[in-house]
């Protein structure tokens, strides 16, 4: 009985292996980009034959490390490659191509009832590092500011730290959540809350604030403002690949940058690269 069963399992495994597509493109990296990539990959697989795509998240850094180790073909990254990473690639003798595929706008969100509608960079820095902790200091009601942040594995967390926090640490009493959707939910429930999410996650249950970096003009995070490039906190989203590997990924990349691919990206709330 048992040997028979084992044999059956082995048989199943081997037949599954036999069915594997001629080539599987392995894609790994940014969690921000994961939902949008899933959509594109699904559409691509419907169209393309004899190809398979393995898509996993884990964060931008994880994807880049995997590309460096040669275990993936495409790395998704919600930030540009750091100089340190470029140097590692050079050391390995790998020529890496960086292809921007979309743009994301980082939005700061508060509870809809919050009277604060605009913030400048210094205020944002002070709020998220915990220096300002009452809404009345910045024109709101007399209540404590509750900061919601992501776990440090998030690329969005890194981006906030680099660009808004002047590389300082988030406030110690900031509440950290393991998913972006959880921030949206918490901010919608809590009158004193503030959080940050990608533009694609902004819903009616929360209020995005207008942001200014020069202290003069405050820009609300909308699709159009981000597409026109006047919203101050936008970031390009990339895929990285090894030039030696180009033939393998070219089909998928072409689809990603095609009108159909970019339409799917827009559908998820990101700004396509060739936006006019």
């Amino acid at each position: 009985m048992i040997p028979k069963f084992l044999f059956l399992v082995l048989l199943l495994c081997s037949s599954a292996r036999g069915n594997l597509y001629a080539q599987a493109i392995k894609v790994k990296g940014s969690d921000t980009m994961l939902p949008m990539m899933q959509l594109v990959v699904e559409a691509y697989l419907k169209k393309a034959t004899n190809v398979d795509i393995n898509l996993t998240g884990g964060g931008s850094g994880t994807g880049i490390t995997a590309l460096l180790d040669g275990t993936v073909d495409l790395a998704m990254s919600s930030r540009e490659a750091k100089l340190a990473e470029k140097m590692k690639f050079k050391e390995k003798g790998a020529e890496i191509k960086f292809v921007p595929i979309a743009t994301d706008a980082l939005s700061v969100i508060v509870h809809p009832s919050n009277p604060v509608a605009k913030l400048n960079k210094d205020q944002l820095e002070d709020i998220f590092t915990g220096k300002i902790n009452n809404w009345k200091e910045i024109g709101g009601t007399d209540s404590k500011i509750i900061v919601y942040t992501r776990e440090s594995s998030s690329g969005t967390y890194e981006f906030m730290k680099e660009n808004i926090l002047d590389k300082r640490e988030f406030a110690k009493d900031a509440i950290s959540t393991s998913a972006t959707a959880q921030i949206v939910f918490a901010v919608s429930q809590n009158k004193g809350a503030i959080g940050y999410v990608g533009l694609a996650y902004v819903e009616n249950i929360v209020k995005p604030v207008a942001i200014s970096f020069d202290g003069k003009e405050y820009i609300p995070p909308t699709f159009n403002n981000a597409a026109k490039g006047i919203y101050p906190v936008t970031r390009p989203l990339f895929v990285f690949y090894n030039a030696a590997n180009e033939s393998k990924v070219k089909g998928f990349l072409d689809f990603l940058l095609s009108v159909n691919g970019q339409k799917l990206i827009t559908h998820k709330g990101f700004i396509p690269v060739n936006w006019q």
């Binding site: 209540s143 404590k144 509750i146 509440i175 918490a186 429930q189 809590n190 004193g192 809350a193």
Partner: peptide, 13 residues
């Protein structure tokens, strides 16, 4: 959310 309302807290977590 219940704790937040009952004890009038800044945050329920």
């Amino acid at each position: 959310p219940l704790l937040k309302d009952i004890f009038n807290l800044d945050q329920g977590e």
